[in-house]
Design a protein around this nucleic acid. Sequence first.
DNA 1: TCGCAGCTGAGACTTAGTCTCATCCATGCC
DNA 2: GGCATGGATGAGACTAAGTCTCAGCTGCGA
Lengths: 168, 168
Amino acid sequence: MPTIDREIHRFQEFLLHQGQKLTKERTALVREIFGTHYHFEADELLFKMKQKSVKISRATVYRTLELLVKSGLVRRVHLGEDHYHYEHVRGDSHHDHLVCTACGSVIEFNDPELEQRQLEICARKKFTPTFHNLQILGVCDSCRRKGEQPASPDRVMSIGEGAMRLRK
Amino acid sequence: MPTIDREIHRFQEFLLHQGQKLTKERTALVREIFGTHYHFEADELLFKMKQKSVKISRATVYRTLELLVKSGLVRRVHLGEDHYHYEHVRGDSHHDHLVCTACGSVIEFNDPELEQRQLEICARKKFTPTFHNLQILGVCDSCRRKGEQPASPDRVMSIGEGAMRLRK
DNA sequence: TCGCAGCTGAGACTTAGTCTCATCCATGCC
DNA sequence: GGCATGGATGAGACTAAGTCTCAGCTGCGA
Ligand SMILES: [Mn+2]
Ligand SMILES: [Mn+2]
Ligand SMILES: [Zn+2]
Ligand SMILES: [Zn+2]
């Protein structure tokens, strides 16, 4: 996978630029993240590494995710659950999320008109925006057909593959 | 304050309807919430009660907030920090938030055009929305004038009055 | 006024994430 | 390649925010 090697290279460039090092743990994490996952959780990543018998500590997972976010390769997002999710930044494009509270699936969208309207609101309030965070919770098409009911606002049914607890 | 008594009455109606009781602890919390705060944290509320020598446990604070949310008198919101905030629902109107990362102030807005655009996006994706959550982080007008720089996306400078730690 | 279903407080527990520190190793320089 | 060294790692203690348990208390309808 030459694509992943390019991500690793980009990460190394970022690291070296700050006098930091590309270790085998960091390489393994980048490989895992860009090889498999999409919206994932820190603990899920930790579990996947354990499964593959690649021994990496929780501290390193969190530290590496923080570096990846700083480097711009990964983005940290809220999806309506009580913990963060991460996603790899492909290309660049900002997007927001529709989250199905019945099956946990996530639909991405990028709507320039919506973004524009947000800027207008900020201008009207003399507010200088740097960042925003929008999730729309509801029921996806296939769940609606199956007759799934909208869940209570704050109970999203686990997004992603549900990382299997690691701590005893 | 006859207004607060009306809120208390509404809460009692809600409770009785479910075979639940209006206790003095619940009354005291409603009085505090509707008398003083706006966007507040659970721990902040706990601290305020302690200050006033009204002895209420953390468990009761959280349990009462949950009931108030269910009753529709209070709403639980994300404002870009790692914990929830609560606000009293006055009238009814849904709104979203601009959060200043320099001073922690919160500006509310309700923009029907933005809401409409969200519905259009959902329709296009055949998604049935039930709820959404939008925060725009940035720098408010008065902070911008003071030359405050936009903080890193995930470091909001404490919103509200910063509840003073209670646990040792 | 009484009975009891529902409520409370103290503190143990949980989840998600951060921090510490002794030890390890990636990189740059010879 | 070998070495030096400052950054990185792992184990596990620690923290923050919130949930749960259970013995004793209390609001409220009869
Ligand atoms: Mn995404
Ligand atoms: Mn608000
Ligand atoms: Zn679904
Ligand atoms: Zn400000």
